[in-house]
Structure formats: C-alpha cells, structure tokens
Design a protein around this nucleic acid. Structure first.
Length: 249
DNA sequence: TAAGTTGTTCGGGG
DNA sequence: CCCCCGAACAACTT
C-alpha cells in the first residue's frame, strides 16, 4: 500500500469522515493515549509523502504503512487493528503500521515542498538538495524522503527509466539538465501512478519495474540490488545512461 | 511452499 | 562520530 499515490487514494476514500467526531479510539500501538481522542473532531486528512495524517484540533495522528500496512474503512480485517477510530456511524481501521502522535503545528514538522505530490512541491529545492549530495547515487536519492517525499521503489525505477538514467549514476556526474528531467519525471510519474492505480491498470503501464525487456529498444532489463539500501533496481543498461561507473569498492 | 516485497528505524561493530 | 549492515516489524502474494 505504500508510496505517495496510494496515500492520496486513502485520503480520498476517507473524505466523508472529515468533520465527524470520534466516539472511541483503540489499538495496540504503544505509547498512545487513546482516551484523548474520544469526543474529538476530525478537522482534516492530510498527507506528506507516505505519511497519512489525521488532524484534530492541536494534535495529529501520523500513520505510516511501511511495507505490509493496510487499512479497512467500515469493515475489519482478520488481525487486530494497530490503530482504529470509531464514529457514531462507521470506523477506520489501520493495520501493521507505525502510529505516532504529533503535537501542535504540522507546518513546523513538515517541509511540504519536499512532497512530490503536494501543491507546494518544489523541483528547484529538490535540485538544490541533490546537488548538496554530489556523491549520492540516484537510486538512493529517489528513496530519500527528505528530497523526494512519497517516492518508493516503483516510482524510483519508473522515473529513472523515463529520464533515461542508470540508477547507479552519482549525482555529480549527471548534467544538470538531466537531473531536472529526472525531478520532473518523478513527480509526473507519481500522478500517472495515481490515475492508473485508480483505474486498476497500474501493472499494465510499468515499463521497467519487474519487467523483462525494455519497451524502447527490446534490450533485456537488468535486475540488481543497488545503493546503500540495497533495494532492487530494474533498468535497461542500453538506454539508461551511466555517465561514469562508480569506483570499485 | 518458501521466498520476495510499493518501508523505516534501531543498534552494534568497525 | 561516521558508515554500513543486519534485525525487527509481521502479512500477503506467487
């Protein structure tokens, strides 16, 4: 369920709960004062990248779904909910996620311009952050939530494919124009991802991720664990340019 | 069926 | 103090 677009879908799915009062909160997430939410009104639902934010007056519940997280609206899964909110009519249940309470102003916590799907997303700031880390590999940069908040392994691979850049390029060896193209494609692809996921056709549109051959030149797609996180990259070694191979090590 | 995974944090060792 | 690695989390799909 991760990656930014899926969080936007969730936000839309729960929109009807905005303005409603919680009758009861429960779950097995530790360190949460569940009682404080009883009687509180949901003021808004927001998101920052992969963070799903349930906003109350003066306090926000942050849900992060990680790799295995899921949710149910007005129904329950077989396992216990990590966090759940009951309303006079309906309920929200969150499973296998990280739950954190954020006190006070969200603007003090989040840099909205880092969120690739936010209206305040700033490609210029992303470029600046990239250039501040010249030795970083592109595959790591695209998973760095401070630079590309909301990008995950699918978006990483597809954006690099669209930008025709090899995942193991170091930032400093890539011409600025190509970095700008990558930044643009990362945000653009995320919205394509959103629309395709809404239509249930995302898999049909994948060009590199989990693919066998390159749709551009029919070259075999390489699958390789890359970067510091050793996350899987799928790329066409023929049309995705590597400006300079990383030093052996 | 056992392996793989749309993710992140933490702590230990070097 | 930094970097890197593995563990932990814990559920669904192929």
């Amino acid at each position: 369920m991760p990656e930014g677009p899926s969080i936007l879908i969730l936000k839309e799915a729960v929109a009807a709960f905005k303005g409603r009062k919680v009758t009861d909160a429960a779950g097995y997430a530790k360190g949460i004062d569940y009682d404080r939410f009883a009687g509180e009104q949901v003021v808004d639902f927001k998101s920052w990248g992969k963070h799903f934010l349930i906003c109350f007056h003066g306090v926000t519940v942050r849900i992060h779904f990680g790799l295995f997280g899921s949710y149910r609206i007005n129904e329950r899964a077989k396992v216990n909910a990590k966090f759940s909110l009951q309303f006079a009519e309906g309920e929200l249940n969150f499973y296998v996620c990280q739950v954190k309470v954020i006190e006070g102003d969200l603007d003090a916590v989040y840099d909205w311009s880092a969120d690739i799907m936010n209206t305040h997303w700033s490609p210029a700031k992303a470029l600046k952050k990239l250039k501040a880390k010249p030795a970083m590999l592109l595959c790591d940069a695209l998973l760095d939530q401070n630079i590309f908040s909301g990008s995950g392994n699918i978006i990483k691979n597809e954006a690099l494919f669209r930008a025709k850049l090899h995942p193991e390029n170091t930032v400093e060896h890539v011409p600025e124009a190509r970095l700008k193209a990558l930044i643009r494609e990362t945000s653009r692809y995320s919205f394509d991802f959103l629309h395709w996921r809404q239509e249930g056709v995302l898999n049909k549109h994948l060009e590199a991720y989990k693919q066998e051959t390159c749709p551009r030149d029919n070259h075999a797609i390489t699958r390789k664990d890359t970067g510091k996180g050793r996350r899987t990259s799928y790329f066409c070694p023929h049309c995705q340019k590597l400006y300079r191979a990383a030093a052996a090590g």
